[in-house]
Write a protein that binds this DNA or RNA. Structure first.
Lengths: 342, 342
DNA sequence: GTGAAAGCGCTAACAA
DNA sequence: TTGTTAGCGCTTTCAC
């Protein structure tokens, strides 16, 4: 903390005004004459004064801090979310306090969120228990679940249309005449995985197909690597694999090509989910379903601001669109257009 | 903010003690009898009381908030840093407030850091101006530069031995008998780039070699892609390329293989810097110099805590080791051991 | 060991 | 428009 930080009283003394005048000068929309305002600003500048945000929060009851809870950044989708969300909130005068959770350590996070009197909380991680969300919501802290939702709860959420995404992938694979279609699941407790898988199954069913083999990768690189090995060690190999996110899909592609010497898409087609930047890298060129991060962030900030500033309490479940991005790992050998905005 | 948050007075009333007793109960090391303490804890629990961190900070003069300033998360080195730093600081009872800067927007960041009375600041981005660091340090806020330093300044820093790293790469390439050795620079204003390049040049000089061609990639994927194209469009092509970080190296490898149909390492060897997880992915298998993130984080937290808690003001310049990680993109066709701990 | 009282730096009535 | 005043919820002397 600063040596002996300069306070509004110091500024007031130098500017020959009351301490309240100083406060008003730094409160947008308060009534101060241009003259006083200028004197205060001059004095503040010469002393290097900055209003103490902590003191301000104490009395105003608003900290302008938003808690962002994340479990892991291994999947590059999340760093992007963090970056964009931070920027968006900063633009609205809020600050982001970052919490990395670990399984079983979540009560501590709740406690800290409450201690710092966060104005709002964003839970942006698929592997979180619903505990934090419920607790905060009960106490009255606005909460938005990002890229997940909790069924039958009153907590607002922002997701993309994961069911649609799954269906689009199914349609692509059906159109490509694939027969032995495998699915590598993420975390089976996550809404993202369940929705993607449901949509996928439905889509296949419409074409008279079904998931031929299924493994679980738990949304981790290692998990996906093992899952892919199990899948490929069998005599009969899949001709297409839908992987529940891009991060795992990269692992799967590595196994297919490097460990089994098979070609993508000639021997096996691979489709991922998220459309992280790496999906567009030449080494992978991964067909995937885009999650529109920008729109999702925008919706999140929107809901959060409404709840924080207008005290709106209605829960909102925003579902953004999903879009198939066809690259060479699957499907680009047809002329069909694989996009849909349902 | 919580509905009507319960305060220490509410707890005191219920527990039949003074408000100070409540405060003492939640202050480690304060003198309270076991009896009172228990009564207070019971009351607190039944009311759902949590001490207000803001009020506490106001009087104690310590916010237990550390500002983490980052410019971009595109390079996967930084998400890892964020994750580990957050976890480490959380373990010591501190919280991380995240600031994403943009060029030209840095004064605002300073202002916000000062307003929230951060106990300390970590600047973990190569493209930051030195402005923030100097300003904070002047005002007395402990600052640590992560993965960079400012020459001739009094600001503490933690880096890995980038010169050594550069030399190790030079030695590897010289040992491999490469002749047309190219360097793709990062941001030329960054200490990381300069040190890596200097070490590299020195190392080559020792073997009677020098940088054959040089391009600038600005530490961005696009920049590196363009740089690689310029390099390869010429008639005479390099036989080895040292790229200033892994993130750019992936771009370079993509260009070499996908756009020019050349093989790595048979036609061109590629070496990166950082050893991010993707360097180990089969699609790249990138020879690189490891930056020991864990050790760097540990040093950062150490310096920060010392300065924040013991008011030590001595600047520290911690330089951790660097280590060559040989994979198939360069150098694994010899039996030599390319490791060194100078 | 415990309570009373004095602020930390600020905002927001309330008068003037 | 301005200054005065009363707190926000807490820690920390200071008596007892």
């Amino acid at each position: 903390m600063a040596k002996t930080s300069v306070t509004s009283i110091d500024v007031a003394r130098l500017a020959n005004v009351s301490q309240s005048a100083v406060s008003r000068t730094f409160t947008p929309g308060a009534s101060v004459s241009d003259d006083t305002k200028q004197r205060v600003l001059d004095a503040a500048k010469s002393l290097g004064y900055r209003p103490n945000a902590l003191a301000r929060s104490l009395i105003s009851g608003r900290s302008r801090i938003v808690g962002l809870v994340v479990a892991y950044l291994e999947n590059h989708f999340y760093p992007i979310v963090i970056e964009q969300l931070s920027r968006a909130l900063q633009m609205h005068g809020y600050h982001v306090m970052l919490f990395m959770t670990q399984p079983g350590q979540q009560d501590q996070v709740i406690s800290e969120i409450l201690q710092y009197k966060m104005d709002g909380v964003v839970l942006a991680s698929v592997t979180l228990s619903s505990h934090i969300a419920e607790e905060c919501a009960n106490i009255g802290v606005p909460v938005v679940l990002f890229n997940r939702y909790i069924p039958d709860s009153h907590v607002s959420s922002v997701t993309s249309d994961n069911e649609l995404g799954g269906r689009l992938v199914a349609k692509l694979m059906a159109d490509q005449q694939h027969k032995r279609i495998a699915y590598i699941a993420g975390n089976e407790n996550s809404s993202t995985n369940n929705d993607r898988e449901n949509g996928f199954s439905q889509g296949l069913a419409q074409a008279g197909l079904k998931i031929w083999k299924r493994k679980v990768g738990m949304y981790s690189f290692e998990g996906a690597t093992s899952a892919a090995r199990e899948l490929l060690e069998a005599d009969e190999k899949p001709d297409a694999v839908f992987v529940a996110n891009d991060h795992m899909a990269f692992a799967v592609m590595d196994v297919i090509r490097s460990e089994f010497g098979l070609r993508i898409p000639e021997d096996i087609s691979v489709v991922g989910y998220d459309n992280v930047p790496e999906a567009d890298w030449a080494a992978y060129n991964l067909t995937t379903v885009e999650q529109p991060v920008e729109a999702m962030i925008e919706a999140t900030v929107d809901i959060l601001l409404k709840q924080m500033e207008h005290k709106e309490v209605n829960e909102v479940h925003k579902v953004t669109d999903a879009r198939l991005i066809v690259r060479s790992s699957a499907g680009n050998n047809t002329n069909k257009i694989h996009r849909s905005n349902r």
